[in-house]
């Protein structure tokens, strides 16, 4: 009897330890970023870092470390991807949850999951050889490696998240709502768009935010598809260099413990904080959604 109780305690302790390890890793990453970012931030100053747009560590004169152009670039590519992925994702989720026949659903759901498994480098490849030339032809630009290209590819990456989580949210809407709507002579599309989507709104918002978190942090695809010109973006047709691309390109070649090195960590820290806050908010919104439907 006593041995059994001890066993239970040990197992309980092990699970607790697992949870603890995740938190420790998260805190460790944050502290590492902070520790390496602070010396640079002290030297450059938060204002110049966040409010000026010139990132030029290799300048002949004084090197500049303004991250605003990167922030704007990341923001543009992310918002662009959401403009594509949100309507498409919600529409697909609505179709799959309420309109599609069971056969179609059986085929489409695994396809969505496979889409999530495509390596980002493969998507970047498609950006260079397929989307880029197509965009160049359509818009008359030189090579089509620009913010739109990145937005399109990131939309593809965010879609699976948005579709499957939105579908879960739609499925958690009580059946009685759909029944009431159908009994009034509404068709399936009217029912899902006018009753179920509003009822599942908070869950769908959470799904879109998680998709957004995915898009912001994505590196390889945007690195390959956006051209990476270190300039302040002038529009969606201009080549952009996002925060993730900057870190990926420069960190490999930077001398350790220089200002440049520290400033790359600062960029990483900002990125970490942004995605952390987005994930946190989407988590809170989703929990609220689940509670409301209970």
């Amino acid at each position: 009897m006593k041995i059994k109780r001890i066993k239970e305690k040990v197992v309980e302790g092990l699970f607790f330890l697992n949870g603890l390890i995740v938190i420790i890793i998260l805190a460790g990453i944050f502290l590492l970023l902070l520790k390496n970012a602070l010396p640079g931030l002290k030297e450059i100053g938060l204002m110049e870092f966040l409010a000026t747009g010139y990132w030029n560590p290799d300048a002949y004169g004084k090197a500049t470390y303004g991250a605003l152009s990167m922030l704007v670039s990341t923001g543009m590519v992310t918002i662009g991807s959401l403009l594509i992925a949100v309507p498409l994702g919600i529409g697909t989720a609505a179709y799959l949850s309420d309109v599609a026949s069971p056969r179609v659903r059986e085929i489409a759901k695994p396809v969505v999951e496979i889409l999530a498994g495509i390596p980002s480098v493969v998507l970047g490849f498609l950006g260079i050889v397929l989307v880029g030339p197509l965009l160049a032809k359509l818009t008359g630009t030189y090579n089509g490696l620009n913010a739109i290209n990145g937005s399109i590819l990131l939309a593809v990456m965010a879609l699976p998240t948005i579709i499957s989580l939105s579908e879960d949210a739609l499925n958690s809407v009580p059946r009685s709502y759909a029944e009431a709507s159908l009994a009034l002579g509404a068709n399936k599309w009217q029912t899902v768009t006018q009753v179920k989507v509003p009822a599942a709104a908070s869950g769908i918002v959470a799904a879109c935010m998680l998709g957004m978190g995915r898009a912001i942090g994505e590196t390889m695809t945007v690195l390959m598809a956006t051209g990476n010109a270190a300039q302040f973006p002038t529009g969606f047709l201009s080549s952009v260099k996002t925060m993730t691309s900057t870190i990926a390109i420069e960190l490999g070649e930077v001398a350790y413990f220089t200002t440049h090195f520290y400033m790359l960590f600062s960029v990483g820290l900002v990125l970490f904080l942004i995605t952390f806050v987005i994930n946190l908010i989407s988590d809170i919104v989703f929990n609220k959604h689940m509670k409301m439907l209970k």
Binding site: Y177, E179, A183, V195, A199
Partner: peptide, 15 residues
């Protein structure tokens, strides 16, 4: 269903 309306067991107004 426009001609044949229905009221359900549990009140189910939309939110």
């Amino acid at each position: 269903r426009k001609r044949v309306g229905m009221v359900f067991q549990k009140p189910n107004p939309f939110p």
